[in-house]
């Protein structure tokens, strides 16, 4: 359901019709060979990208490389959702005040809306899609299902990534640490008690080796 091939086709199809440049280039996002050398040559990247111009970047998302053209001002959130079709990552404020766009960057929860896409090169980006094994849910996702840790579900991918990030750092968190860990993710439906239960459950599942 969340295969990268689907995402690729989706964004490509859109890219082809969307901008003059992409029409002539004939491709939006391309998947290049899986992992390997990453990170830009610093000298080369010291060049200025002019406002409104697009530059080619490579992002490593959920273990796959994506090459695309971006403007300097484009946020990682915009690129994930609108260019690549990773729509699990939500936009709730666009200004680092709600947490719906939380993704892991090198394993740590951060706001994709407050990260420029050009700054996201050379790091590992993980979205909710990246927690899945094929169509199977990861432990944090399973725990969220079990404990009904959401209502409308809109903040949920962000909450899940916050919990995932917390558990990668602290595999056996206390309730206090969990409350802290998700305190950068607003849930207007107020599912916090169930989110906290789910995080504890996810820690147990991870400890018992569930993947």
């Amino acid at each position: 359901m969340s295969s990268d091939a689907d995402k690729h086709e989706c964004s490509c199809g859109k890219g082809l019709t969307r901008r003059q440049f992409l029409t002539s280039a004939g491709a939006g996002a391309l998947i290049v060979t899986a992992s390997g050398h990453l990170g830009k040559d610093q000298e080369a990247s010291a060049a200025v990208i002019k406002s409104g111009e697009e530059t080619k970047i490579t992002l490593l998302i959920n273990g796959k490389q994506f090459q695309m053209l971006v403007e300097p001002r484009w946020s990682l959130l915009y690129v994930l959702r609108e260019e690549l079709g990773f729509t699990a990552t939500k936009e709730g404020c666009g200004r680092g005040e709600c947490g719906a766009c939380t993704v892991l960057i090198d394993g740590m929860p951060r706001y994709a809306c407050m990260t420029l896409a050009v700054e996201a090169e050379g790091v590992e980006i993980t979205t909710v899609e990246g927690l899945m094994k094929g169509e199977d849910l990861g432990p944090v996702q399973k725990a969220f299902v079990e404990h009904d840790a959401f209502q409308c579900g809109y903040c949920t991918p962000g909450q899940i990534m916050a919990v995932e990030g917390l558990l990668r750092k602290e595999p056996d968190p206390t309730v206090g640490q969990i409350r802290q860990g998700v305190s950068g993710n607003l849930c207007r439906c107020g599912a916090y008690p169930h989110i906290i239960d789910a995080a504890r459950r996810a820690a147990e599942m991870k400890k018992s080796g569930a993947l």
Binding site: C10, K14, E82, Q141, D148, G153, P157
Partner: peptide, 24 residues
């Protein structure tokens, strides 16, 4: 658990703000 829990935690639930149509 909710019958649509999978969709909500996997990100496959498509919210109106996720809708992306050709030539949109």
């Amino acid at each position: 658990p909710r019958v649509d829990a999978y969709e909500r935690v996997s990100g496959t639930a498509r919210y109106p703000s996720d809708i992306h149509l050709p030539r949109m």
